[in-house]
Design a binder for these strands. Structure first.
Lengths: 297, 297
DNA sequence: TTTATTGTTCAAATATTTTGAACCTATTAA
DNA sequence: TTAATAGGTTCAAAATATTTGAACAATAAA
């Protein structure tokens, strides 16, 4: 016999353990006690292992029974999830979706996007991978990623891969008026600004994610949930950081925020996304659509 | 219906996929073709998902079918291991120890580690299996694995699961001085390097991992038992391959080995390990300790 | 000592799976 | 073009497997 353990047997075992007796398990499963007895005996026989010992009028799990039950529960869970994943796939939703992001890009806009995604579809697994320079490209051709957010303009068209430019963002180092850095010599050095508290956009997908792999190193100091909050925090003088120019143009003009040049800093971030044209998944569509909208930023 | 997917159905699906047709699967399973048909139809009906599409006179898996099969195989494996573990517990043996490794990671360091383990505790059965992207995470929550070696930095802390970073490894494509690839235009293309003989670290453990893995294709390869041997073989000009930078720094500087850039290659491999905090096993501790040591590499 | 609860056994009833023959349908060979 | 062949499906009958219910034994609680 290839698989002596059946799902039904595991289900029965689980019910017995939770309810405390064969009789109660029978009741829960809408079966008659003798059916439970039969299932357990069959399992013990097929597996050639004693799973219950009689203690008084009750049956108690043996050590082997406990191992079987504990691990078996994991398998039952996996089965349930597999059924869900399969159905999701059938209706066009990928069960897992992998995003690779070039590590030089800012993640400020990605976290809120993922958070938004989980609000809509909480049980799809999103994995974000950071890729170093050429890696993002490779990630897609080797099917490691479904969507790549890469740095630079769109690369030359490639067989089977679609590229699309994402809005170009100009980042600028910003502090509140009266901040001590406004007194420092310009341009500011990296060393100097790193001594100040940075405000970063937090990965808010943490709590809601079914399970998400996040793969970048960061040393956040003050985390906020979105770029809007980041602007507010900066204005309140809680810290310093880079902000997208187009979002703070007015405030800069009104003197509510001060922009300062920093040495060796790339200000303009051009990025593109890439995906396989054969991929018709709905999750992919969702992300492409969101990223295409000019105001998602 | 609580569990629409049965183990038998997964077994049938697996056989169909491996053998290529319903008829061949029927033959393998000592059943009649109509029985296979019946099982598949029942599964499709219970799950309310189309799993096969007819192409010509053959039946081909749909996307959903592929997801089901791929994940289902993991569950079948888990079932087999569970049966073994239960029997071992019954007979007083320590249960098997399962390690899941993310398939994008290099196995080079694992095989020698397992070999070392057998020197210390030869009676314990170690299973290594490969998990695709998110799967490694899942493997631990569902108890399919006792230890997971996953890609990326440590994920968000999770109830009952402990994560620990493993040393980050930078891999670099290396050849011996005077190798003909040193004359080629840089960066090297994948096609080009694939024409050369690769040196890979062999799976020298008893219970070998399911697949050979990760070498680009069925090219001529030379298997060696450890990374040290791999370095030696490379230096002798026996072949080419990726090596961890920190192990060959000196040799690169002395010109004993030549590093060459390859297009679209991810150079830096970050990884972490994960295990259940409830697991107090001796075997687990041994592996954690070994993997924590910086020089195990 | 009753009485209720728990688990087991066994034959009968019921449900599920497997079979084999007949029948499609798309490729391949003649 | 036609025949032969390699899948795949359908359906009723046969073979298996599971569930039931009644009778029974063992133990704890009243």
């Amino acid at each position: 016999m290839k698989y002596p353990i059946t799902l039904d047997a595991l289900e029965v075992l689980d019910a017995i353990d939770r309810k405390g007796s064969f009789a109660a398990a029978a009741n829960e499963l809408f079966r008659v006690p003798s059916a439970i007895s039969y299932t357990v005996q069959k399992l013990e026989q097929d597996l050639d292992v004693v799973l219950f010992r009689k203690e008084g009028r009750k049956a108690v799990l043996t050590q082997a029974g406990k191992v079987l039950l504990e691990q078996g529960r994991g398998i039952l869970d996996a089965m349930e999830r597999l059924a869900i994943a399969t159905k999701k796939t059938h209706s066009g939703w990928e069960p897992v979706f992998n995003i690779a992001i070039d590590s030089i890009l800012s993640f400020d806009f990605i976290y809120p996007l993922i958070a938004r995604f989980y609000e809509v579809l909480p049980d799809i697994e999103i994995n974000i991978y950071e890729e170093v320079l050429g890696g993002a490209q490779e990630a897609i051709t080797s099917n490691r990623a479904d969507l790549v957010i890469g740095a630079g303009a769109e690369p030359t068209p490639n067989q089977g891969i679609k590229y699309q430019k994402i809005r170009q963002i100009e980042w600028i180092f910003t502090v509140a008026p009266g901040h001590e850095l406004t007194q420092a010599a310009l341009p500011l050095s990296r060393q100097l600004i790193e001594q100040h508290r940075f405000i970063v956009v937090r990965d808010s997908s943490r709590n809601q994610a079914p399970q998400s792999h996040r793969v970048f190193s960061k040393r956040p100091v003050l985390s906020v949930p979105s770029v809007t909050e980041k602007i507010n925090a900066l204005r309140s003088g809680l810290g310093v950081g880079f902000l997208p120019v187009h979002r703070i143009q007015d405030m800069l003009e009104q003197g509510l925020l001060i922009a300062l040049p920093v040495e060796n800093t790339i200000l303009i971030e051009t990025s593109h996304m890439a995906w396989k044209t054969t991929n018709k998944g709905k999750v992919l569509r969702w992300f492409i659509e969101q990223l295409s909208q000019h105001d998602f930023i």
